[in-house]
């Protein structure tokens, strides 16, 4: 059985349909061990540090957030933000960890007149 690639499995949750200017939640969950480098395995060997190095979320090129440091995010980081958009489009999240694994996920939202 092959190991799943860390950070490849993620969810980006947005409501499918919103009104113009309506505030809604964007929820981002990334399956990633966020290994701190302070833990040891059963043989006493230090587990190599592997945290997310960069993580950003944008909507059609406009930034929602850009993480500069994520030292203490839990394993499988989960972040929620409240956003508002004026037109239909796609949210796009991308990330990279210390081992060079990259991932991305996108989710579309349709905006209807208020």
């Amino acid at each position: 059985m092959s190991e799943p690639i860390p950070g490849r499995n993620a969810r980006l949750l947005v409501p499918p349909l919103v009104r113009t200017g309506e505030e809604f939640q964007v929820r981002l969950l990334i399956q990633h061990p966020m290994e701190t480098g302070f833990r040891r395995d059963v043989d006493g060997n230090i587990l190599e540090v592997n945290l997310l190095e960069s993580l950003s979320l944008d909507f059609e090129g406009q930034p929602v957030f850009n993480a500069l440091t994520m030292n203490a995010l839990t394993a499988n980081p989960f972040l929620t933000f409240v956003v508002a958009v004026k037109q239909s489009g796609k949210f796009n999240a991308r990330w990279r960890d210390m081992k060079g694994n990259v991932g991305s996920i996108s989710a579309s939202v349709r905006v209807v007149a208020a």
């Binding site: 505030e23 701190t36 302070f38 944008d58 909507f59 406009q62 930034p63 929602v64 957030f65 850009n66 993480a67 500069l68 440091t69 994520m70 030292n71 203490a72 995010l73 933000f81 409240v82 956003v83 508002a84 958009v85």
Partner: peptide, 15 residues
């Protein structure tokens, strides 16, 4: 052990 837990830049899409 790493005191800076989290640092984020916020963007214009946030309500």
């Amino acid at each position: 052990p790493r005191p800076v837990a989290l640092e984020l830049e916020l963007g214009s899409v946030l309500a």
